[in-house]
Design a binder for these strands. Structure first.
Lengths: 211, 211
DNA sequence: ATCGCCATGTAATTTATATTACAGAAAAGC
DNA sequence: GCTTTTCTGTAATATAAATTACATGGCGAT
């Protein structure tokens, strides 16, 4: 029995099956994001990934299984890179927040994130679990990270934030805001540039006394 | 020739053909919004609207033509009700804006608006024109209306708003914000209640000196 | 080397749905 | 009332895609 038991982490050369699996996931993800789930056929996926339809069915059961596998891979990725954004440079809190806003904005405007959000919305009717999973991975970590930061500042008397979570959501709204609909509608990028972003942050910073 | 010439506005009893047309549009709109475009079959539409497939094709050419007809009807509706929101009651500007925000929020959370946005996003890859048209009807009027109001206030010295359009977009971002993604993801309603909304508006009001 | 497992490629099957064709029914115009 | 035009129901056609079946070939283990 060379069958890999649970938790066999130490890098082995990935088996053919595993490489196939990854290749299919890669291809499917690329095509789904580019064209949407409905309009991507399994044949197309297999043509891009190599391998065969039969293996795909063997690995994932059916088309929806493939979708779930992709979502779950996204979840793992997201959990592995905890957005380590808050480098402890010797910046003021306001500077720190500005930097964070810029990064968050960049992250949201990346073609992959845009495609992902579009897919989240498109498939939310078909498959509630899928949508929920993506939403959690995509949005909730950002809120939590920011909440924690605000709570810290408030505790240290560096800001007057009564409700850190609400403040975090407000900040994200300010940053992402109406650009999202614009982008999701497939229109040309019209995201906020650095100046606009700073301008938007001013009311927030002064209201919460973030210096 | 009793054929109706252009601009024959005065109410005539709508012909059978027109009633059929409307019925089909109603049915298609309802089903598209509920299930999405891809997953709604023309047979289903006709079953709901009455009439026959042949008439549908005669009226709209094909499925995409039907979609365009729906979009264009939305456009007309939007143009006909110019969101007459700013009743000139004897309220302070801040009160006025609060009221506007609440109404805007209600409008965005209506099932029809949600379904419409979801559809806008889903179909944006397939049909750029369709997405563009909906986006314009849905979002741009709100921005313009608000911009005009802010410009007025600024001119009258009732607020310190240097860039009315940017301010309008910021306000909409604050109001709609992250609830939108949440709702579009098909999750339970978690829109802002009146208190939260007021709380969010405070930084905005004080920053722009809106009293 | 050889046996058996598994992936592959191809093709059959099934299903769903857009689109077209057509014959009968209803309505509109005179 | 008669004729012509327009709708309706049904069914044919076409196409696309998911899913399944199967025969073949390669690769690893004994």
């Amino acid at each position: 029995m060379v069958k890999s038991d649970l938790l066999e982490c130490p890098m082995e050369p990935p088996s053919l099956r595993e490489r196939r699996r990854d290749a299919i996931l890669d291809a499917a993800e690329a095509l789904f994001l580019e064209q949407g789930y409905d309009r991507t056929s399994l044949a197309e996926i297999v043509k891009l990934s190599g391998g065969s339809l039969a293996t795909l069915y063997d690995l994932f059961g059916n088309k929806q299984g493939l979708l779930h596998a992709i979502a779950s891979r996204w979840g793992n990725e997201a959990r592995c890179q905890p957005a380590g954004c808050m480098a402890m440079a010797d910046l003021s809190n306001a500077e720190l927040l500005r930097g964070y806003a810029h990064r968050q904005c960049d992250r949201m405007r990346s073609p992959r994130a845009v495609a992902l959000m579009r897919m989240l919305v498109s498939e939310s009717l078909r498959d509630r679990d899928f949508a929920l999973q993506i939403y959690r991975d995509l949005h909730i970590p950002a809120v939590e990270e920011l909440s924690a930061l605000f709570a810290e500042w408030a505790a240290a008397g560096e800001a007057e934030i009564d409700d850190p979570e609400a403040a975090a959501k407000l900040l994200l709204s300010i940053v992402i805001g109406d650009s999202m609909l614009h982008t999701l509608a497939g229109l040309e990028d019209e995201w906020l540039d650095a100046d606009q972003l700073d301008w938007r942050l001013q009311p927030f910073l002064s209201h919460f006394k973030i210096g």
